[in-house]
C-alpha cells in the first residue's frame, strides 16, 4: 500500500464544485503517477481551470478529495500545499527583480542567504536566464517572463507542478519553443505536472496523457494517440483533430440514413483517379494547401467530405474516387465500433 502511495503523483476523487449556484465540476476522478505529465484539455467554461485551482488550493471542493503524493491536502490552503503553479499571465511581481522573484518562496521558507542564492542560480540556470537575474520582469520578453515563472515554481521543488495555460500569451513560434523547453525540463526533473490548456495541439504534443473535459466532467483520459485514434465519445472525436461527421450508417463505403453517427478522420479518406473497391465518385470543390499536406473538399452523392492528402493532389472540378479507410461509429454519443 505504501509503495502504491509513494508512486502516486496526484489523485482526485469525487471532486465537486459549485460556483454561483452552478455546478462547475461534477464527481470528477483522476489519478496520475509520479513524474507523469498530463493535460486538462477542453473549451472555455468546461471546468479545467476550476479543477486546477482546486488542486492548487485556491478553491476548496464542495465534495471529494485531493491527494498529492498520497497525502490528503483537500482542506489545506495554497500556502500549505506541496504544489507550485505557473499562472497564465506569469504573475511575476513587477517591483522585484528576476532573482528576487525566484528567491521569494525560499525566503518565505526561511532558507539562509547562501542556500537561497545557490538555489536561485540553479533554477535560473535551468531556464537559461542567469543573464537576466537583475532585470525587472517588465524589461524582459514574454517568453523570458514565462521562464522566470517556471523557475519560481521549480525552485520550490514541488510534488506537483501546475501550469495554467502557460503558453497562451506567446506567439506561435515562441510557443513551440517554450513548449519543448517545458517538456524537456519536466522529463529531466521527473516532476509530476498538470497543464491546463484549450489548445489540443499543445496538449497532444506535450503530455503523457490528456484528460478531455466537457461540462465539468472528464470525457476521456488517455494517451494522445489513443485519444485521436479511438475517441471514446463523439465529443472527444469532434474536439480532438478534424472529423467528417455524418448522421447515418456506413454500408459498403457509403453513408446511408440511420440512427448512428459516423466519424471519419480526413486522413482516413483515400483519393484516387481510378475506381477501386468501395470507392465512390465525387467532384473536387476546394483544394487548400496546408503546408506539408493538402486539404481537399469533395462532394459525393452521400455527402461532403474533407480529406487530407499529400500523394494524389487533384484539381478543383476534377472527378475523383473516395474510399473510406477507417471510420468511428457512435450511438448516443458513445463509441460502439
Amino acid at each position: 500500500m505504501k509503495n502504491v502511495e509513494a508512486n502516486m503523483g496526484l489523485e482526485l476523487r469525487g471532486l465537486k464544485k459549485i460556483l454561483g449556484g452552478r455546478v462547475i465540476i461534477e464527481n470528477l476522478d483522476l489519478s496520475m503517477a509520479k513524474g507523469e505529465m498530463i493535460s486538462l484539455l477542453g473549451p472555455s467554461g468546461c471546468g479545467k481551470t476550476t479543477t486546477l485551482r482546486m488542486i492548487a488550493g485556491f478553491l476548496i471542493p464542495d465534495a471529494g478529495t485531493v491527494k498529492v503524493a498520497g497525502k490528503d491536502v483537500t482542506n489545506l490552503g495554497p500556502e500549505k500545499r506541496p504544489s507550485a503553479m505557473v499562472f497564465q499571465n506569469y504573475a511575476l511581481w513587477p517591483h522585484m527583480t528576476v532573482s528576487r522573484n525566484v528567491a521569494y518562496p525560499l525566503k518565505i521558507k526561511g532558507l539562509g542567504k547562501i542556500e537561497t542564492a545557490e538555489k536561485v542560480e540553479a533554477a535560473l540556470g535551468l531556464v537559461n536566464l542567469l543573464h537576466h537575474q537583475d532585470s525587472r520582469p517588465g524589461r524582459i520578453s514574454g517568453g523570458e517572463q514565462q521562464r522566470v515563472a517556471l523557475a519560481r515554481a521549480l525552485v520550490q521543488e514541488p510534488d506537483v507542478l501546475l501550469l495554467d495555460e502557460p503558453l497562451s500569451n506567446l506567439d506561435a513560434k515562441l510557443r513551440e519553443k517554450v513548449r519543448e523547453d517545458i517538456r524537456e525540463l519536466q522529463r529531466r526533473l521527473g516532476i509530476t505536472t498538470v497543464i491546463v490548456t484549450h489548445d489540443q495541439e499543445e496538449a497532444l504534443s506535450i503530455s503523457d496523457r490528456v484528460a478531455v473535459m466537457n461540462a465539468g466532467k472528464i470525457e476521456q483520459f488517455s494517451n494522445p494517440q489513443d485519444l485521436y485514434r479511438h475517441p471514446a465519445t463523439e465529443y472527444v472525436a469532434t474536439f480532438i483533430g478534424a472529423l467528417n461527421r455524418f448522421e447515418g450508417n456506413l454500408v459498403e463505403g457509403r453513408i446511408v440514413s440511420g440512427s448512428d453517427v459516423i466519424g471519419i478522420r480526413p486522413e482516413d479518406l483515400i483519393l484516387s483517379s481510378q475506381q477501386n473497391d468501395d470507392a465512390l465518385p465525387g467532384t473536387v470543390e476546394l483544394v487548400i494547401p496546408r503546408g506539408h499536406f493538402f486539404e481537399v473538399v469533395i462532394r459525393r452523392e452521400d455527402g461532403i467530405f474533407k480529406a487530407f492528402t499529400n500523394e494524389f493532389i487533384p484539381a478543383v472540378g476534377e472527378n475523383v474516387f473516395v474510399k473510406i479507410k477507417k471510420s468511428l461509429r457512435y450511438q448516443n454519443g458513445k463509441l460502439v465500433g
Binding site: 488550493g57 495554497p78 499562472f87
Partner: peptide
Amino acid sequence: ESAKDCGA
C-alpha cells in the same frame, strides 16, 4: 495568489 502559492 502567486505569493500564497509560494507559501506566504
